[in-house]
Design a protein around this nucleic acid. Sequence first.
DNA 1: AAGGATTTCCGCAGAATTATGGGAGAATTA
DNA 2: TAATTCTCCCATAATTCTGCGGAAATCCTT
Lengths: 220, 220
Amino acid sequence: MHTIYLVDDEVNLNRVLVKYLEQEGWQVKSFTSGEAAASAIIEKPDLWILDIMLPDLDGFQLIKRIKAHDETTPVIFISARDEDIDKIIGLEMGSDDYIAKPFLPRELVIRVKKILARAYAAPKTGVIRYGDYMIYPEKRVIEENGQEIDLTSKEYDLLILFATQIGTPMSREQILVSVWGDDYFGSDRVVDDLVRRVRKKLSKLELETIYGIGYRLVAA
Amino acid sequence: MHTIYLVDDEVNLNRVLVKYLEQEGWQVKSFTSGEAAASAIIEKPDLWILDIMLPDLDGFQLIKRIKAHDETTPVIFISARDEDIDKIIGLEMGSDDYIAKPFLPRELVIRVKKILARAYAAPKTGVIRYGDYMIYPEKRVIEENGQEIDLTSKEYDLLILFATQIGTPMSREQILVSVWGDDYFGSDRVVDDLVRRVRKKLSKLELETIYGIGYRLVAA
DNA sequence: AAGGATTTCCGCAGAATTATGGGAGAATTA
DNA sequence: TAATTCTCCCATAATTCTGCGGAAATCCTT
């Protein structure tokens, strides 16, 4: 779940946008002044949404401070004035996107989704980190603090399945299809068995059983 | 097949739009006055298309009534006046889209398609918010301020049933069928029990008893 | 305010589900 | 082929969930 900080002094619009953003499951904090927002920079939200025109510290000054604190934090500008838009585009303000008023809240939501996906997508190397474990899918290797751990092929398949679906519950049926293929017709108790073996080898992996449903990997 | 209700007092445009919408295979009913449309709200169409300017009850008043009846019903506004457009966007009118006159009928059709797809395609992906609770249906998880709460599978089924029917009273019979299935023949006191357990775990959920009838979840 | 109907509360036993240990056979490797 | 590892499955233990009865509390009607 991502945290989004919104800065806009129009309280009405502010309230509406917060509602829409929260609807998407994001944790939103909103500010109506630039100074208030500036003091929250150290809290490192995952994304900023800034109105340009603010009573005290304007959006341009804000983004400078945000980027000074952490260059990688994505920022979306919103503005009504054409000359502001020109400025955003013309100057290298470092913003990741902008949106002109008036706009539909869902337009903003779409842009936020895109930016978040781009900024926080799994690294291209394909390496998955889970606590002390490092997983290298293409090598079919998992290390604990640099120490390689031996997994059998099914054990590894199961690990990858869960590691790429962290937090999502998986039914035995889903696991069977994913690990054994859809032409397996034995008992689904083999899943329990496999889970047991993986748990034994990877004791720090929080493989939670969901009674009546299946299993899931709890976020580290 | 979806049902679409169209409200516009320009009979010419009205007739044209109905034709285009029906061409897509949708079932269309059209109104030329706000009052007439208002009395059809209980028929629960899948989507409303509202002109803002109407002789009696205008589009803004109409959408209020529609959303009051069912918050999730999608609404598309059509309007010629710029100040109306501003109002749609600035205020929290809850509209899902708008289109400015003049427009091509097929432009409207495209928007309708998108809205319908979003509203009725994958209902499982949406996050449900209820006060401090966030419900993630596909993960079978509910969080209170980020803190996950454990529910058993029946408890979760009950939660989902109510959370997707906020405000609607449910009889024990309905709950039995929905949670236990229609092949359960024990006492319906088990519903009381399940409600009690859910209330205990989710104390902020306003699960109201309707004496002699059943239960309902009061809007947060 | 009484009395009957309905709902809530409580604890427990049995049902359902999952964990574990061990063994046999299959698959792989030496 | 023998040795080793891997996988499946069974039996049993451990755990979790759920339905139920009955007592207490609450609600509604008269």
